[in-house]
């Protein structure tokens, strides 16, 4: 049976949804996972893990872990993996994990696979991931004798219900090293958005050229507010300077896989489809019935978005 280590990200004392997905998966597979938590509040947050079948956590409850420094984290996490003897390491495929784990894998002479969309923990651990911008998928076959590091895209695995709380044994990780570092975190400038990041969002409302001008993104913000969505955008409107690159979905932007993706005034260029075709349900609202986005959509509305979107906002308000 695999010995699983889960890198559990949390913020403000709450485990992130991606971490809960992995904890649920390990529990369903009947595996006793160990968790790693880094940052202030790690000890108290780790106590929540008992309800997810975790009986042991490795904690670095130290302000030195509150900001992500790749060198410090790589040293700490690689050592924790080694000491735990884990043969499978799971983490949510967040921006931090994708930066961190390749360096950890290099330290441990092992493999890391990022942005996986399928995971099986029963028997031999396997995963699948999209390649070539989602034009195909492939399974991963590990040839490493070291730990198999798998980073799962958010929203791919079900989150079960928390079980009965039970005690979690804590092992403290050494304090972060401070000497001899080549990397200094000078500042972290928090984004203004209170919403979930695109990569974690369950619902995304995205806009394109069809909105005609930047100010009309307000229509999308209104719709997003009603259904708790995060707003995204196509490359065309990012290049036009209407909205920041941080919200671009597609090849040179973010890859997303929400339960619901509402594409408003987006024609569906290949490079946009590459970033969102993994969404569970896709709604396309466009005035051009021949727009390629309709070929990827679950539901399509040919119409004037300036009429349809406000009407949809009202309908959502009525039922939500």
């Amino acid at each position: 049976m695999s010995k699983v280590l889960i890198f559990a990200e949390f913020s403000h004392g709450q485990l992130k949804k991606g971490a809960l997905e992995l904890l649920s998966a390990a529990r369903s597979a009947g595996l006793h996972a160990t968790a790693v938590l880094l940052g202030t509040g790690a000890k108290t947050t780790a106590q929540q893990l008992g309800a997810w079948g975790v009986s042991e956590a490795l904690v670095g409850d130290n302000a030195g872990f509150d900001q992500y420094n790749p060198e410090i984290f790589a040293t700490t996490v690689a050592q924790a993996i080694k000491d735990s003897g884990a043969d499978v390491v799971l983490a949510s495929s967040t921006m931090m994990a994708r930066d961190l784990f390749p360096r950890v894998a290099a330290k441990l002479d092992t493999a890391v696979v990022g942005d996986c969309t399928e995971l099986s923990l029963k028997g031999d651990v396997t995963a699948r991931r999209p390649l070539f911008s989602g034009k195909c998928t492939a399974g991963v076959s590990f040839t490493t004798s070291g730990p198999k590091i798998i980073l799962m895209r958010a929203n791919q695995l079900p989150v079960g219900d928390a079980g009965t709380a039970s005690a979690v044994a804590l092992k403290e990780l050494p304090a972060p090293t401070t000497g001899g570092l080549g990397t200094l975190v000078k500042a972290v400038v928090k984004g203004t958005s209170e919403k979930l990041d695109l990569t974690e969002a369950n619902i995304i409302v995205a806009g394109g050229r069809g909105l005609k001008e930047a100010a009309n993104f307000k229509l999308l913000n209104d719709l997003a507010d009603v259904c708790g969505a995060t707003v995204g955008a196509s490359r065309a409107v990012v290049d036009a300077g209407w909205v920041p690159h941080t919200i671009q979905v597609g090849q040179t932007g973010k890859t997303v896989a929400p339960s619901l993706y509402i594409a408003v005034g987006i024609s569906g260029a290949i490079q946009h489809l590459a970033g969102m075709s993994g969404s569970k349900v896709i709604v396309a609202i466009n005035k051009d019935a021949n727009a390629p986005i309709f070929q990827k959509a679950t539901y399509g509305i040919v119409g004037d978005l300036f009429e349809v979107v406000p009407a949809l906002t009202q309908e959502f308000k009525a039922i939500l």
């Binding site: 900001q67 080549g182 990397t183 975190v185 000078k186 500042a187 400038v189 984004g191 979930l196 990041d197």
Partner: peptide, 17 residues
């Protein structure tokens, strides 16, 4: 001195030797 984007529009400023 580099600027990197992370989640939710957050920016990290790092200094690398």
């Amino acid at each position: 001195t580099v600027e990197r984007e992370t989640e939710g529009g957050t920016k990290e400023i790092l200094e690398l030797k």
